[in-house]
């Protein structure tokens, strides 16, 4: 398989193009600044995108629409428990991840016990999570402990800490998918559920663990985002609903499932930030920006999928 036929290549090419077009405007000034910002904000999209990728890999109809609400609920409860007190960052992390685990279990319970299609189940559940977030804190913004805020906005070896977290998770997901039995089970389930079941794959176990993983990823992203931006807000997860699906598709994973692509998710996450920055820098209005973003996404998806079809 040649390099050109790798579906993740296109998201990275697009990100690089958006990056250089923006810098073309400034004749190269601010490259470091822009790259740093892209890595910081891209990390959140990459983390939720990795989770969404696992679910989408499960096959047609599998998607988690409760990601924004899970992010908001996890962040709200974690920041409330921490109450800006120093030394509580770990407690907050545990609470956030526990919330994620809980929403993942609840999502899967709705899907498995009530036989609801995942789209309906996760959308309905997200209303409950969002309401819980509203009810628990009435939208008050509590600042993260200063140590945690410094970590979330800080850097290590010149790269943002949140990007290191996103990178570590990407490597972990890649190893699990490529090198573990569970990853093979997941791909087999996504390619054909019935065949996988007949071949002895514990498909329901795979599905349950996948829905729990995506919720845990979302809760981690929420926890980091709230620490990064100075507190949880009720609408903080909103833009990550479409974002999480977009980065999976642009990244070259198959929307029909059974085929996932870890490096593409990161490329797409960077691209999604850079394309908006590029269009903003060129002074495009909101309407033009949305149309162009949509057109570019379609073009990348076509490029990535037609290459794959030929191999």
């Amino acid at each position: 398989m040649s390099v050109l036929s790798r579906p993740w290549l296109w998201s990275w090419l697009a990100a690089a193009a958006a990056f250089s077009l923006t810098l073309g405007l400034t004749s190269g000034r601010g490259a470091g600044e822009l790259g740093y910002a892209a890595l910081s904000f891209g990390a959140f999209a990459a983390i939720v995108g990795l989770g969404q990728m696992l679910v989408i890999t499960l096959g047609p109809g599998n998607v988690d629409l409760s990601i924004p609400a899970t992010m908001t609920l996890a962040a709200t409860l974690a920041l409330k428990a921490m109450g800006s007190d120093p030394g509580t960052a770990f407690l907050g992390l545990v609470i956030a991840l526990a919330v994620g685990f809980g929403t993942g279990v609840a999502n899967y319970a709705l899907i498995f016990l009530l036989r609801l299609p995942p789209i309906i189940a996760t959308l309905a559940a997200s209303l409950i999570y969002q309401s819980l977030a509203i009810w628990s804190n009435r939208g008050l913004r509590i600042k993260p402990p200063s140590g945690l805020a410094d970590f979330a906005t800080g850097r290590f070896l010149g790269l943002p800490n949140v990007a290191w977290v996103g990178l570590a998770l990407a490597i972990l997901v890649w190893i699990v998918l490529e090198r573990s039995v569970w990853g093979r089970w997941l791909l087999a389930t996504g390619q054909n559920l019935r065949v996988a079941r007949l071949a002895g794959v514990p498909v329901e176990l795979v599905r349950a663990s996948t829905y729990i993983s995506v919720a845990v990823f979302a809760s981690l992203a929420g926890y980091l985002l709230a620490s990064f931006s100075g507190g949880a807000a009720l609408n903080m997860g909103q833009e990550y609903l479409l974002m999480s699906i977009a980065v999976v598709v642009i990244g070259g994973s198959s929307i029909a499932g059974g085929n996932s692509n870890v490096p593409g998710v990161w490329g797409a996450a960077l691209f999604m930030f850079l394309v908006v920055s590029m269009l903003n820098s060129y002074g495009a209005g909101a309407g033009v920006r949305n149309v162009l973003t949509g057109t570019i996404i379609i073009a990348i998806v076509i490029a990535a999928s037609s290459r794959r079809a030929r191999t």
Binding site: L34, A37, S40, S229, G230
Partner: peptide, 14 residues
């Protein structure tokens, strides 16, 4: 707040 921070960070270099 977080959306603004992201948008401003993206346009500032230019």
């Amino acid at each position: 707040q977080d959306v603004s921070q992201k948008a401003v960070a993206g346009i500032l270099p230019s």
